[in-house]
Design a protein around this nucleic acid. Sequence first.
DNA 1: TAACTAAATTAGAATAATTCTAAAAGAGGA
DNA 2: TCCTCTTTTAGAATTATTCTAATTTAGTTA
Lengths: 135, 135
Amino acid sequence: MTDQNLRDMLQTRGLKATFQRITILDYLMTHETHPTADMIHLDLKEISLATIYNTLEKLVDVGLVIVIDTQKDDKRHYDYYGEPHYHIINNNTNEIIDADNFDVAPLFEAARQASGLNITGFHIEIYGVDPDEAK
Amino acid sequence: MTDQNLRDMLQTRGLKATFQRITILDYLMTHETHPTADMIHLDLKEISLATIYNTLEKLVDVGLVIVIDTQKDDKRHYDYYGEPHYHIINNNTNEIIDADNFDVAPLFEAARQASGLNITGFHIEIYGVDPDEAK
DNA sequence: TAACTAAATTAGAATAATTCTAAAAGAGGA
DNA sequence: TCCTCTTTTAGAATTATTCTAATTTAGTTA
């Protein structure tokens, strides 16, 4: 992903292409670690923590990034959301796995029927344990 | 739900049946409001906020209650989880709707295949907007 | 290319949800 | 009823996140 590609991703969504936004978006696209704001700040020390939070909020607003609440700690985790997907959380290791082998269309239709709303998005977290481990 | 029923629900899950736990569990079972700890405390002033948090944590641990992160505020919302269900969040009103018209078995199987884990639970939030409202 | 302006960035302070502490009260078994 | 371990509690502490107000910058216009 070139710098120009990243600029385009931001600008087509109405966001100014600042150094900080380009850097943070690139960071999220190239890391599978589902980092917290603080973890990003540790790696990108030249960007202030306030800007990390501001930028993440903007990226979430335009749909490039989503927030994951793992329920394992009190921090928000962030994930590049180029393609819609769901998360599998290993309760033994707290690892977050991305997966997309599931068609959400039937779930969307069920939600539309239940609520009458126009469905705009989803967050799915599936929890599991290692088969070896005693539960 | 009688007091004795509530006691049994707690004791069969290894929790002592204290007045506070019975009261909070009953509160969650009889309110569809998906309250925060603070909202519960406003209604149950005789129970300290620390105990509200402690009790909710225990109830979540034993699976009677789940946490919903609406992403609309910075507070955790709690929901009695007698029957597994998913949530539909209205982005216009921030209302949380319970729904269970969807079979999660195929999703569990997909998650098992993707991760190799034994699946133990799920959290699903579907976001939508009123059809009338301009998006 | 220089000037302009609204938006973005920043350091540090402020906020507030949640957790911690340690002392008092209570549940359930003997 | 007694005993022991668990639970409850008030208030302090923690800390993730937000706010503030001054500075800088991106993108546009001349």
